[in-house]
């Protein structure tokens, strides 16, 4: 599946150019963090990679194959949204939903779902309606739902925005566990602390352009672009 190659990607919506020609090659292994200020185009870039949006021009190449359009390609990916949609059913059924779509039998799906719920610490809430869980629990459930599919690549869009510190810590813990199990992590954040804690490499986006694509240490020590430098500087006092 990997590497993922972006070739001269652009995306225009309603006359506004949101992605302005991004090329990059994302390798298997390191946790990739797409970093940048709000409105930089991080979420759109991630949706393009995941195949939820179609690029206006340019290509997305998975392991030599074209396009992220086909459902088959998407079977090997999963995504957790900033505000995940909880289906109006139990936590367990939420996890089983994706598994059944992936062709698992009911009993297989249930076994697998219980396993991941256990890992994210929601086993005791398995039968509770997903929508009555707390914000942090819902985000953990969303992670479990995505992880259960056993994706090669997991996209995470601002997974801890709007969460309190304790919940954030839980989520980051789970993300690391997923990484450790061999799944490629690609996530967006605007939070420098989180980028530092979770990232192995940084893709810094500003105003629809990829400004830097570097290992984490080099990014913070020696940013090559003025935008990145000022972003790091501007953000630091609040971290």
């Amino acid at each position: 599946m990997l590497p993922l190659e972006l070739q001269e990607l652009t995306f225009t919506a309603g006359g506004a150019q949101i992605i302005r020609g991004i090329s990059a090659r994302i390798e298997a292994g390191p946790r990739s963090v797409i970093l940048g200020p709000n409105g930089a185009g991080k979420s759109v870039l991630m949706r393009l990679c995941h195949g939820l949006l179609t690029p206006s021009s340019g290509r997305i190449v998975w392991h030599g194959a074209h396009g992220g359009k086909s459902v088959d390609m998407r079977r090997h990916q999963a995504m957790v949204f900033q505000r995940p949609v909880m289906l109006r059913r139990s936590a367990l059924a939420n996890v089983m939903y994706g598994l059944k779509l992936a062709g698992k039998s009911r009993s297989q799906a249930e076994l697998r779902a219980m396993d991941v719920l256990e890992v994210v610490g929601l086993a005791q809430h398995a039968q509770r309606p997903a929508r009555v869980l707390s914000g942090g629990e819902q985000q953990r459930l969303a992670l479990a739902r995505a992880w259960a599919l056993g994706p090669d690549v997991l996209f995470l869009d601002e997974p801890t925005a709007n969460l309190d510190p304790a919940s954030t810590q839980d989520i980051e813990h789970i993300i690391n566990a997923i990484h450790a199990s061999g799944t490629k992590i690609i996530m967006t954040t605007h939070n420098l602390g989180q980028a530092r804690r979770l990232g192995d490499e940084i893709l810094f986006i500003s105003n629809g352009r990829l400004m830097e694509h570097t290992p984490i240490d080099r990014f913070f020590k020696a940013p090559t672009s003025a935008e990145a430098a000022s972003f790091i500087k501007g953000e630091i006092p609040w971290q």
């Binding site: 949706r47 459902v71 998407r74 079977r75 949204f81 995940p84 949609v85 939903y97 599919l149």
Partner: peptide
């Protein structure tokens, strides 16, 4: 509008 991306991401036709 709310579910679209989530369901497509999960592979729902």
């Amino acid at each position: 509008r709310e579910y679209d991306e989530q369901l497509r991401s999960l592979g729902a036709r």
